[in-house]
């Protein structure tokens, strides 16, 4: 009992942190002191001071504003990737679990097995590297490079989410409630969409929260090697890539602040996910997912 409470104190901290990050992301235009993309070579590489709270980078851009704006990209990628993963994973997992014992289930399970046995990070690097970092143009719409990151990361999540959903649905499908509903004449779709899905919410919430954390790190890492968010758009990963060149010359504010931003945000999601796990899913469905 005590442990759940203690764990949830951490969960509470996580929620607060995420809350702050979300507010920053939403209010970035208001909170930022400068235009994050405004170049000012004369004022480059300034240490943190009154005007530039976190200093300026090699192009004279205000680091503080860039860090604030960076939350937008990171959260967007993190959340959208998870949404994608949920859409794909829940669909596949529900179908597989509902039609348990069938060939369809076998095929789906094996496919998820196969998908989780390839190193998706490397493939993401290769795919983006091969296709190029130009935005995707679909008619009048233009999707920036991060879209590719979102899609690939979402695919990374699908097997794990499908597995969790599959396990829950398999159990639920055999329950008396479902049998009763079927006798009442409810269609398969109605049953799947109703009671069964409701039982997945708890473990999936935990999983989703933890996956947002992973997604933020993946985006930062890909941006770091130039395959994620493209300059001049501010992203913590690209800021760190720029900072690399200044490691030896003592401009410590260039790597420290973006990195702290990533760490704090990810810690927030991990704390919340851990706290939620203690509350919603003490031992069962979710396993630690590695990336």
């Amino acid at each position: 009992m005590l442990r759940v409470l203690a764990g949830n104190r951490l969960g509470l901290v996580g929620t607060v942190v995420i809350g702050v990050v979300v507010i920053v992301a939403l209010l970035a235009p208001v909170l930022a002191t400068h235009d994050p993309e405004e170049v000012n070579l004369a004022g480059k590489l300034q240490a943190p001071n009154r005007e530039h709270l976190m200093g300026t980078d090699q192009s004279g851009r205000d680091v503080f504003s860039r860090v604030l704006w960076g939350t937008r990209v990171s959260l967007m990628v993190g959340v959208l990737a998870v949404v994608l993963g949920l859409l794909g994973g829940v669909t596949i997992g529900t179908i597989a679990g509902y039609y348990g014992g069938s060939l369809l289930e076998q095929v789906l399970v094996r496919s998820m097995d196969a998908l989780s046995s390839i190193p998706l990070l490397i493939w993401a690097i290769a795919v983006v590297g091969i296709i190029g970092v130009a935005p995707i143009r679909l008619g009048p719409l233009e999707f920036p490079n991060e879209t590719k990151v979102i899609l690939l990361t979402g695919v990374l999540y699908i097997p794990a989410i499908a597995r969790v959903t599959h396990a829950v649905v398999l159990v639920e499908s055999a329950s008396d409630y479902v049998r009763a509903r079927r006798a009442q004449g409810a269609s398969d779709l109605e049953i799947m969409g109703g009671e069964i899905l409701r039982n997945c919410i708890s473990p999936l919430t935990v999983q989703a929260t933890l996956f947002v954390a992973i997604g933020i790190i993946v985006e930062a890492s890909l941006s770091f090697i130039g395959l994620g968010v493209q300059p001049p758009k501010p992203s913590w990963g690209t800021m760190l890539a720029d900072a690399r060149g200044y490691v030896f010359s003592g401009e410590w504010w260039l790597p420290v602040f973006p990195g702290l931003a990533i760490s704090v945000t990810v810690i927030g999601f991990n704390l919340l996910g851990d706290g939620l796990r203690d509350l919603l899913d003490p031992r069962k469905a979710t396993t630690q997912q590695m990336v």
Partner: peptide, 21 residues
């Protein structure tokens, strides 16, 4: 929790700054 949250490549950068420089 920190170990799982702090990006490895940033940790590397920071370690270079501290440990090497």
């Amino acid at each position: 929790i920190a170990g799982v949250s702090v990006p490895g490549f940033w940790l590397g950068l920071m370690l270079i700054v501290c440990g090497a420089v």
